[in-house]
Design a protein around this nucleic acid. Structure first.
Lengths: 236, 236, 236, 236
DNA sequence: TATGAATGAGACTTCATTCAT
DNA sequence: AATGAATGAAGTCTCATTCAT
């Protein structure tokens, strides 16, 4: 059976196609070639997507840059949508995992400090993600508001996943008294928006300065707001 | 008189093409027809762009929906990019104006309260914008991270304009002691990101609840942060 | 009745259309305007045809250059073919006349000298033509080998007319013993080819030198050949 | 190996596009198919060009007649201009070669007879050309006076090449005392014009009679002129 | 398997012609 | 009469996808 990762095949998990009868041992020569091809195509596609946008890149652009024949593309991916889906798959997994782990820890937390520490789970997971898949994350940021149609749909679906998981987590956090009493959707979206916009600036090279200090600044900003300290309303 | 604007004519302000001399009175039948056509094409295009993304919409889609002949499109716009440009033109103008007015008021402000009130200028300007051009704003939010290539380029250029104006304004505000001592780029982008993400949720119908309360919540959030009040660090 | 000079209307003589009921006196204000328009369109068309070839020039190119509205073109000409036909009409007439006059004189000639002088008729007629309609002649030379289809057909028809008239004239001249005993078609085409190629060089600016001496050189060439005199075969 | 040639690639010699590396052996099935396609397209195009003129023939006309898909055209040629260029390429080469060889022989000639014989080189070369590429030559004759723009440009460029080479050769011949003392441009153009016009008559079927005798008649005509022998001016 | 040739639908754009103003 | 807006057929070229080699 084909494990097709395409729009036409939503049920199946995203990922490269596998021919029905795969010759050679897993890990053998053919399997290695196969992986190299997939990597070459994915890398080429990613670079081009960032440069010109997903929609504007043709299959031939990708295969040419990857150094393979046009027809070979279809041995590894059903179509451009499937390739995009496979690019985002590890990110989707990481997002799901990070939030789920954090939520689990939050649920088991005793006391505020322990609860707060659940956020570290998210930070760690997503931090690792950003470090290891910077380009995919940038592509996500670039295309994530697209209508859920065509080849950009996977980006949008990932955005919806992030929103859903984050809202869920926020509700849990507020149930533990960690947050102000706001509608979870509003505060969550604000945070997502702030974080993503900053991330976009960093990854796209818009920020020239030292990006290492940004996360800390961002956390302060989110937790304590923008208002200048001497104008701070009295706590409580 | 209408301004001429075309992709080949970047110097001129964006807008529909107009022959230098035309028959018929301004305000006459032809002039009316002309405006109707431009509106029909722009409206049709906007609706389709929101539904399927700018890149995926063809000229024929637009003309069919607008109820005009395919060739007529080119009497009014050089190409899809020019149409997009003309959609964003009033928004660009409004953004520029709102920030410039606010900056001017901020520069002349005496005291913090007066300075803070300069933000009202922005809020008012952009609020009006959002009310009157909701769909264009939504389109902007949807496409604003696109690479500055092809038909989506005007969206990206507008995003760059917003960022530039906002950072400039933030620096001015900090010079007046209104804000915490953060790098202006970081805090500005965070605010832009938060606001835009929320706006996207509202305009795209993601938020089900009462959107009228959102702006106030958002302002509190931005100024005072997310942290629950009883955990607030001591002021100063 | 319309006197349309168009491909669809081969029976009628070539020339500008005339509205069925023409207002105003011939020679009056309207008639003058009419002639001016026709001249403007014809001149503009001719210039463009020379620059880019008949086929490549659009109706709009012509009207724009002539400074009239596109729709006005169709008041004066049925289509581009009709305009081309009307450009060539005076040349066709002059060609017909020059050859017919010369043939008539030749038929009445007594003696060789008188017969030879009939050629002056042609030379004079065509010389005047070339002087007064240089651009049309150049256009003819440029397009005269086109298949007799589409807008270039009138050029080809003129070429066929020239060939027909010239062959007829040559046969007559040989009957008077003026020429060598060659198949009339061969010698006539050779002369036409030589004359037209030279004319093309002159009119298109290919020849830099003094064009006034060319006709004499050409006549010597045609009558006495290229061979260097000291290699001349014995006469007879 | 086939030479790559495209409109965008003017530096390279004209010819069908070829990817740098292709699968299949030279001479294998793919290579054969390739050549068949190019021939089918070229033949179809040539026939249509002769029938309707280069400008009036569309890519679809060509592919339909050749029995291939529209898109396939662009695998072999960049556009119509490139196809025309490739049609004329062998003719250009032959012209260049014939004149260059003849000029070389002329330069080395001792005595008039030997010098005169250099013309045989041209006659032979161009004769072979006409026999083997009659249709291309006819197309050349049909389109060679076109402005050097668009798809007909290659025809005009070939005409310019012929004129240049021929004038150069004539100057050489006169330096050897073979020809009358005329400006080389005038006599050369006259001869080119005569020859080409006759050739056009023959190849286009205008001449009904025996074409085999025409070349001899033409040579006599060119060398010794049209004047009836008993009117010949005294030699010398 | 890999290749790239072939296909034809479809996108963009132009333009001759008609027609309301 | 003059204008130029409207129309839609037609042309150019691209590209996803299939398939012979």
């Amino acid at each position: 059976m084909l494990r097709a990762g395409s729009a036409k095949n939503r049920g199946a998990p995203a990922g490269p196609k596998v021919p029905s009868e795969r010759p050679g041992q897993p890990g053998g020569r053919r399997d290695t070639n196969r992986k190299e091809r997939i990597k070459a195509l994915s890398d080429a596609a990613l670079a081009l997507f960032l440069l010109r946008g997903i929609e504007a890149v043709t299959i031939e652009d990708i295969t040419t840059k990857a150094g393979v024949a046009k027809g070979s593309f279809y041995r590894y991916f059903d179509d451009k949508t499937a390739l995009v889906e496979s690019l985002f798959a590890p990110v989707s997994d990481a997002v799901r995992e990070a939030f789920d782990h954090s939520s689990a820890r939050l649920r088991e937390a005793r006391g505020r400090d322990e609860a707060f520490s659940s956020y570290e789970q998210i930070g760690e997971g997503l931090g690792r993600l950003i470090l290891h898949h910077a380009d995919v994350v940038l592509l996500y940021l670039q295309e994530c508001r697209a209508p859920a149609e065509g080849a950009r749909a996977p980006a949008r679906r990932l955005a919806d996943l992030v929103a859903e998981k984050a809202v869920e987590h926020t509700k849990l956090a507020r149930a533990h008294g960690l947050l102000r009493d706001f509608p979870a959707e509003v505060s969550t979206m604000a945070v997502i928006g702030a974080v993503e916009r900053i991330l976009f600036s960093i990854l796209s090279g818009e920020f020239k300065g030292e990006p290492l200090e940004v996360p800390g600044q961002l956390i302060t900003l989110i937790l304590d707001g923008l208002r200048a300290p001497d104008q701070q309303r009295p706590a409580g």
